[in-house]
Design a protein around this nucleic acid. Sequence first.
DNA 1: CTTGTATTCAAGCGATCGATTGACTACGAG
DNA 2: CTCGTAGTCAATCGATCGCTTGAATACAAG
Lengths: 124, 124
Amino acid sequence: MAADSLSRVFAALADPTRRDIVARLSGGDATVNELAEPYQVTLQAVSQHLKVLEGAGLVTRRRDAQRRPVHLEAEVFDLMTKWIERYRRQAEERYRRLDDLLRTLPDDDEPSPSPTRRTKGEPA
Amino acid sequence: MAADSLSRVFAALADPTRRDIVARLSGGDATVNELAEPYQVTLQAVSQHLKVLEGAGLVTRRRDAQRRPVHLEAEVFDLMTKWIERYRRQAEERYRRLDDLLRTLPDDDEPSPSPTRRTKGEPA
DNA sequence: CTTGTATTCAAGCGATCGATTGACTACGAG
DNA sequence: CTCGTAGTCAATCGATCGCTTGAATACAAG
């Protein structure tokens, strides 16, 4: 997988078990054993899932005797939402501009057989 | 990978090339050739990336002669943002409640060596 | 019909993923 | 010190990923 942090966050949440772990951690910290309990997989598998989540910065682990309570770091979500919102907004803005354009020329049928190729031409 | 749609969307965006493709499509539709041009990989590799994005519902393809213009479907982003926002809000709300609790008992040092275990007890 | 262009299909390959098993470390309690 | 508990490390395995090459399909134009 790519090493950049955005890729790691998306990849971490691409697994349903890991998403479920995140969902449960949003209700409060928990130990590895507590987290592993609802799933059929081994404790080690959950431990590895947590390592992935930790690598993505989504969770941190305290050290409390032999227990390692897992804590959700919800701020990392911002990284994703920022990325998503940026391009969503850009796409929606484009639709808006297209609508405006269509309104300014209310005539039917395309004027030429070679429509807009060359998409690069918008530095935006 | 898991078959559910949320997993597919997250997995699709876990790749930097695919994120870049999405980013570029937010500026307007493009053909496979146009999309492949900036990257070092083969056209086939880009075609496969597009298949993944299509499988996640992030893009659709029209059929225009031998060309297949790719179109970004920004609505699918909602699936992610909804999921993210839900648990982010839940986590933040928990912090707020914790703060409130800490304010109600303004005495220093922890009252007992066994703090809140048993995270399950909150149906929220 | 033949050629060129745009794109997909198909098979193969090394790398990584998710999971398992078995051994190991860290710590508290008896 | 020994035992049970909480968790990680390490090796392995099959499945999937991202990419490549080579062949096939779809279509427009000469």
